[in-house]
Simulated scan of single mutants.
Amino acid sequence: MNDRPADAEAPQSEVARTPRTARGRKTLRALLDAAAEEFGAKGFHATGITDITRRAGVALGSFYTYFPSKEDIFRALVTDMSAQVREAVGPHVKAAPGALEGEREALAAFLRFVSRQQLIYRIIDEAEFVAPDAYAEHYRSTAARIAERLQAGAARGELREDVGEAEAWAIVGMNVFLGLRYGVWEKDADLDGIIDRANRLLADGLRRRDGD
Rank of each mutant, 00 (worst) to 15 (best):
V89L: 11
V89T: 08
G61K: 04
A134M: 05
A131V: 05
V114N: 02
K187P: 03
D162V: 05
R122D: 14
G193Q: 07
F39L: 04
L201K: 02
G61L: 06
R145E: 15
A152D: 14
F39V: 07
D196N: 08
I49R: 02
L28Y: 07
I123C: 07
F67Q: 05
R207W: 03
D133E: 15
S69C: 03
G179C: 04
P5H: 06
E137H: 11
R140N: 15
E14L: 13
D204F: 13
A152C: 01
G61S: 04
R29I: 00
D3W: 04
R54S: 04
L180N: 01
E126A: 15
E105F: 08
Y66H: 13
V89D: 09
D72V: 01
V114E: 08
N2E: 10
E103M: 15
T27S: 02
T142P: 00
G43C: 09
R54C: 03
A154K: 13
R25W: 06
G179Y: 12
A22Q: 10
R112C: 08
Y64A: 04
R112G: 09
A99C: 06
L28N: 08
G153Y: 10
S115P: 02
V130R: 07
T65L: 09
Q117N: 11
R20K: 12
L201W: 10
R209F: 02
E158P: 06
R116C: 04
A198S: 13
A152N: 13
F129P: 00
G153S: 11
G153I: 12
A41M: 11
R20D: 12
E105P: 03
A154F: 13
A154M: 12
N2K: 01
V184F: 03
Q118D: 09
T27Q: 14
A131N: 06
L150G: 06
K26N: 13
A136M: 07
V172L: 03
E128S: 12
E105W: 10
A41C: 10
K94Y: 06
V172M: 11
S13E: 14
G211E: 01
T50K: 04
E38G: 00
A10D: 12
R4N: 03
H45V: 02
D196Q: 10
I49A: 01
L31G: 04
E87C: 01
A134G: 10
T142V: 13
R156T: 06
G43V: 00
R181P: 04
E71S: 11
A127N: 09
G173S: 15
R17K: 12
V93A: 08
G164D: 12
P19Q: 07
A56I: 07
D7P: 00
D3H: 09
V130E: 08
G61I: 06
A155V: 08
Y135E: 11
M81K: 11
A6L: 00
D133P: 00
